[in-house]
Design a protein around this nucleic acid. Structure first.
Lengths: 199, 199
DNA sequence: CCTTCCTTATGACATCTTGTCGCTTCCTAA
DNA sequence: TTAGGAAGCGACAAGATGTCATAAGGAAGG
């Protein structure tokens, strides 16, 4: 967690630092991001950085938190709009991440954050307790549409859909797929998930 | 690619370097691996390392190639053993990676390599051309068991199963799941893939 | 046996990073 | 006015990467 000092900063300065973080973490991986670049860009001395953040990882947590909050909110909103349809929500999240989110975060940053979430298997559904908002997203899912043998199955459904959606999104972010091709692919894969693979 | 010089090396020396690579790349991420540690462990001077490898990334490619070759071979073998059953093969690959592969590679290294494959979306099915063996694994899959609308669907099936299997394996490697729980989870998730999610 | 030429070995170095620490400056409350 | 905590600051130690000039080996030919 960033220090109290950081949050006490004047808005102008905090925003300048935030911009620098986004700027630097947008290129390459987190490992490649250089603190030296960040402080040059933000025009703050080295010592200050370490007064605000424990280390590079700490700095990035700040951005991840923001991203997750927005992501969570988008998910909640999508589930409401689609009357709890988990497949349509997956597509909406894909669209959000590859379009709108990019406006707020820059595609490179979104990629890195998603990579980090995936590495740590952080799932907005499961990690809602990390977020201010306490109500569970799973409650918003319409179970009537789903082929659930037990209530517990929903957990696996979410795992699978999350993995697939992330996978495609990452390919788009890595520029192995165009946004359009990625979407078609995700649509196709969701159809397969709906209908099953076995004859 | 490692240099010709590296492959010309006396076996004893090459193996010493290889061991050093495995040793260092087994702890933490690739980014964290230190060339200084590698050369100390292998007892070679700094200059030699850079004569053998372009850089750290190049050194690691050597290990990845080895891993992929073994992985490919295991996949081929599993498909034969199961008469082309893609679901059972996924489980066999899971078992292989979490048990046998670890004996050859060390769990830390296996984790890092898989992470790298995932990051670059390298799929043994799709990237067979990188391997010496030229015959396609997809030919070994028994399509009669599968709910394929078009021949192209097989491609998506493989993508999905690969993503899910990798996802669970990574969780086990990261010690968020035990090997046993991971296996149960994968079995469950494969069942869902077979039967579909939609009522 | 010596010279030539190509391959391999070697470690000092320039350059860049990260994280620390002691000192200075600012601000507020008494 | 002043005391004390909060914030600012940059030199520096420690350690990493990649380069380069030079040395050493060894095979082939005169």
């Amino acid at each position: 967690m960033p220090s109290k000092t950081f949050f006490n900063l004047k808005e102008e300065k905090r925003e300048r630092i935030e911009k620098a973080l986004i700027h630097e973490f947008s290129k390459g991986s987190f490992e490649q991001a250089s603190i030296t670049n960040i402080i040059n860009y933000a025009k703050i001395p080295r010592g200050s950085f370490y007064q605000y953040f424990e280390d590079k990882k700490d700095a990035v947590k700040y951005l991840i938190e923001k991203f997750m909050l927005m992501d969570y909110e988008k998910m909640r909103q999508s589930l409401e709009e689609t009357q709890g349809n988990i497949f349509e929500t997956a597509l909406k999240i894909y669209d959000y991440r590859t379009n709108e989110a990019v406006l707020n975060f820059d595609i490179g940053l979104a990629k890195n954050i998603l990579e980090e979430l995936r590495k740590n298997n952080i799932n907005v559904f499961e990690n809602k307790e990390n977020l201010k908002n306490k109500d569970s997203l799973t409650k918003l899912i319409d179970k009537a549409q789903l082929n659930l043998e037990t209530d517990n199955d929903l957990y696996y459904f979410i795992r699978i859909i999350t993995a697939i959606t992330r996978s495609v999104t990452m390919e788009v972010f890595s520029e192995r797929l165009s946004k359009e091709d990625g979407r078609k692919m995700l649509e196709k894969e969701l159809e397969i998930l709906k209908n099953g693979m076995k004859k």
